[in-house]
Amino acid sequence: MSRISEHPILGKKEKGKEVEFTFDGQKMKGFENEPIAIALKANGVMIHRYTKKEHKPRGLFCAIGRCTDCVMVVDGKPNIRTCVTPLKEGMVVNTQDGVKAVGM
């Protein structure tokens, strides 16, 4: 199974109810309140963003919210650290290109 069951900072949490969310236009399922990155990994998604300059793929790296490798556009807002942001029903998650300037 590809689901991470214990987060290095958030610890082990009880599994929430199953919810549906959208990733790059595709419907997926995860568990409420688990980090978005964990739900994506469980669905086989390993790329969260691409670097701006060389368009290199980035994904889950530190899993504690310190780096920017897992940032994505969530519900229209860029730079969301998906490794520590809880999944909610109906979220719209999109791959991000680079790291956006604040306020974009």
Rank of each mutant, 00 (worst) to 15 (best):
M1I: 13
S2C: 11
S2E: 15
I4Q: 09
S5L: 14
S5Q: 14
S5T: 13
E6F: 03
P8V: 03
P8Y: 02
L10C: 02
G11D: 00
G11I: 00
K13I: 00
E14T: 09
E14V: 09
G16C: 09
G16I: 01
K17A: 12
K17S: 13
V19Y: 10
F21Q: 06
T22F: 05
T22N: 11
T22I: 14
F23D: 08
F23Y: 15
F23A: 06
D24H: 08
G25E: 07
G25Q: 09
M28K: 13
K29C: 07
G30R: 04
G30Y: 03
G30W: 01
F31N: 10
N33R: 06
N33T: 06
E34L: 01
P35R: 00
I36E: 01
I36V: 07
I36G: 02
I38G: 00
A39C: 04
L40Y: 04
L40D: 09
L40M: 11
K41N: 11
A42S: 14
A42C: 05
V45H: 04
V45A: 06
M46K: 15
M46I: 11
I47L: 02
H48P: 00
H48C: 05
H48S: 05
Y50V: 08
T51C: 07
T51W: 04
K52C: 03
K52L: 14
E54G: 06
R58Y: 04
G59N: 08
F61N: 01
A63Q: 11
I64H: 03
I64W: 01
R66P: 00
C67M: 09
T68R: 06
D69A: 13
C70F: 06
C70E: 02
C70R: 03
V71C: 12
V71Y: 01
M72A: 10
V74N: 05
V74P: 06
G76N: 08
K77C: 10
K77Y: 13
K77V: 15
I80Q: 12
I80H: 08
I80T: 14
R81Y: 11
R81V: 12
C83S: 02
V84M: 00
V84C: 00
V84Y: 00
P86Y: 00
P86W: 00
P86V: 01
P86F: 01
P86C: 07
L87G: 07
L87S: 05
L87V: 04
K88I: 01
E89Y: 08
M91T: 07
M91R: 05
V92H: 09
V92R: 14
V92N: 15
V93G: 04
V93C: 08
Q96Y: 12
Q96G: 12
D97N: 15
A101D: 13
G103Q: 10
M104Y: 09
M104R: 11
